[in-house]
Design a protein around this nucleic acid. Structure first.
Length: 538
RNA sequence: GCCGCGUUCGUCUAGUGGUUAGGACGCUGGCCUCUCACGCCGGUAACACGGGUUCGAAUCCCGUACGCGGUACCA
């Protein structure tokens, strides 16, 4: 079905085209009853950005995209959005693949397995974006902009001071065209910006939310191509979704405010919009967007901490959703089989480890035989590989073989059991600061090895003006659960980054409970201090 | 600040005008039992608030409050 250029007859108001004609009268809240499907094959996608650790939210979104596609006999694509050259890494990309595989999420097309619409890595599609950005410039829907950061900053501050929305003022849009072209041709640094209407509003249907309306005046002249020649998310995302035949964009609600930009791009290219479905965001216990500061977010942590992938996936399947028959324990296939996107609820679900624990326990005692659990233990950490790596550290300390188990138990344990007063030591606030700083440092530490951990602490010794023995004391306790243990740096390596970090985090929580909480002004001051003394002189 | 999206037990949720507002986690009392755990039985606890519409609103409409998200040459 070909649709004409989507522009509403009402002046200045553009409406994203939906596949069906819109109902007469006011748009009613969508019903939870299944809505009719768009004809033709369904294609969904997950488009993670390979920066940092693989996020549990990525698995959450992947699950719903996969279920929707499969339920309707369609395809599910994995696309890597590595348009941020500064932050994207191959290592992180690999970690995303591994995380999805661990979780049991299969994809039909992706960078690792190809497909008819490849490549599936945005950094390899630059010529495609280039061509499309040119199309927009040629048709006057985008324009080069030469403004530097200083001007933009000043502009933003002035607008904020006048209580206006920060928004590019169109300065470069009104430059003389031939002059502009000349400056571009001579290689002057510039970005390409999207032309956005000044008046009217953008109205877009969302499958779960009804019509979303946003005034154009609040939408910025989005940069489509950065100075480095790379596209921004907005451009690459729209171009790829169209070219890859994506019919349903199922993503987090954090994207709602950039919806108008995307709609404008689809219109600019003369393409039909996909159906938009904005899911609620996973939340911390305090309701803020799930973040590693407050909750474990790395998929690898859940694996290392001994969660079963099927339990994690099952748990994610009940975030914002219940099966039509209310079952709480289900396989991926069962989830897919009965999946109805219209049953998704919009309130942001708090990710509750206690309930995940209960579910994980049920899997362990109800769905696996002892022999199968043994296999899982081997696949987890209780295997020759770990024992063999621990042996060089324990060998000289052994009197009988039986000493080995208590000596290495901390490598396999969940929560540690130690005295918080001992952790705090004589200077609780100082201990808290040290743990906090080490944790920040470790978040950046790559690779995570005994050597790099040693370097981290030696660096800290210098900057904190403490001696190593004194500095390390609380870390022995926090990481191994004992004041006397195997060498700390090697222990950290054996434990791995996720588990080590989590233990420091737990140490911090214990200190907080004991009255040494870092919060508010103290925390802010520490952050600033940390930035000054560690980050800027790195 | 501005814009947007939300709001049923502490948490995950059922509920689509008429229900004693149901289930699950957690917490808690009991049973089972060599301990613990599991399991079983019971308890605790919610429609944010105010106006409408209606014979009747958790359910529909409007406002308020609160929460969250966005406001980048990050995604």
């Amino acid at each position: 079905m070909h649709l004409p250029h989507p522009r509403d007859p009402r002046a200045g108001v553009s409406v994203a085209r939906f596949w069906q004609s819109r109902p007469a009268g006011p748009f009613l809240k969508p019903s939870r009853r299944a809505r009719p499907m768009r004809p033709g094959p369904v294609v969904t996608r997950i488009a993670p950005s390979p920066t940092g650790d693989p996020h549990i939210g990525t698995v959450f979104m992947a699950l719903f995209n996969l279920a929707f596609a499969r339920r309707h006999g369609g395809k599910f694509i994995l696309r890597i959005e590595d348009t941020d050259q500064g932050r994207s890494t191959r290592e992180s990309e690999e970690a995303i693949f591994a995380a999805l595989r661990w979780a049991g999420i299969p994809w039909d097309e992706g960078p690792d397995k190809g497909g008819p619409h490849g490549p599936y890595r945005q950094s390899e599609r630059l010529p495609i974006y280039e061509k499309h950005v040119q199309r927009l410039v040629d048709s006057g829907k985008a324009y080069p902009c030469f403004c530097d950061a200083a001007r933009l900053k000043a502009l933003r501050e002035e607008q904020l001071a006048n209580k206006q929305d920060p928004r590019y003022d169109g300065h470069c849009r009104h430059l003389d065209r031939s002059d502009t072209m000349h400056r571009v041709a001579t290689g002057e640094p510039h970005v390409i910006r999207l032309v956005v209407p000044d008046e009217g509003e953008c109205v877009v249907p969302d499958r779960l939310r009804g019509e979303i309306r946003i005034a154009w005046s609040t939408v910025d002249h989005q940069i489509l191509r950065k100075t480095d020649g790379f596209p921004t998310y907005h451009l690459a995302n729209v171009v790829d979704d169209h070219l890859m035949g994506v019919t349903h964009v199922i993503r987090g609600e954090e994207w709602i405010s950039s919806l108008p930009k995307h709609v404008l791009l689809y219109e600019g290219f003369g393409w039909e919009c996909p159906e938009f479905i904005h899911m609620p965001l996973l939340r911390n216990p305090d309701k803020s967007k799930l973040s590693k500061r407050k909750n474990p977010t790395s998929v690898t942590w859940y694996r290392e901490a001994g969660y079963l992938p099927e339990a994690v996936l099952n748990y994610l399947g009940m975030m914002g959703y219940t099966l039509p028959d209310g079952r709480e324990m289900f396989t991926l296939d069962e989830f897919i089989e009965s999946f109805e996107i219209d049953r998704v609820v919009l309130g942001g679900p708090v990710f509750d480890l206690a309930k995940l624990n209960w579910l994980n326990g049920r899997y362990l005692r109800e769905s696996l035989t002892p022999a199968q659990i043994l296999e899982r233990l081997h696949g987890w950490r209780l295997n020759d590989d770990l024992l063999l790596r621990a042996l060089p550290l324990t060998q000289k300390r052994l009197t009988t073989l039986a000493d080995f188990v208590p000596m290495t138990a901390f490598l396999l344990r969940g929560a540690l059991d130690y005295n918080t007063a001992e952790l705090a030591g004589s200077d609780g606030p100082r201990t808290a600061r040290w743990l906090r700083i080490a944790l920040w440092q470790m978040e950046q530490l790559r690779p995570f090895t005994a050597t790099s951990v040693r370097a981290l602490f030696e660096d800290m010794v210098e900057r904190e003006g403490a001696n190593l023995r004194e500095l390390l004391a609380p870390f022995f306790l926090a990481v191994t659960g004992a004041k006397v243990s195997l060498p700390l740096f090697d222990s950290c390596e054996l434990l791995g980054a996720d588990l080590t970090r989590r233990r420091l985090h737990e140490g911090l929580e214990r200190l907080a409970a004991a009255g040494h909480e870092l919060k508010g002004k103290t925390l802010k001051a520490l952050e600033e201090d940390y930035r000054r003394r560690y980050v800027e002189t790195r």
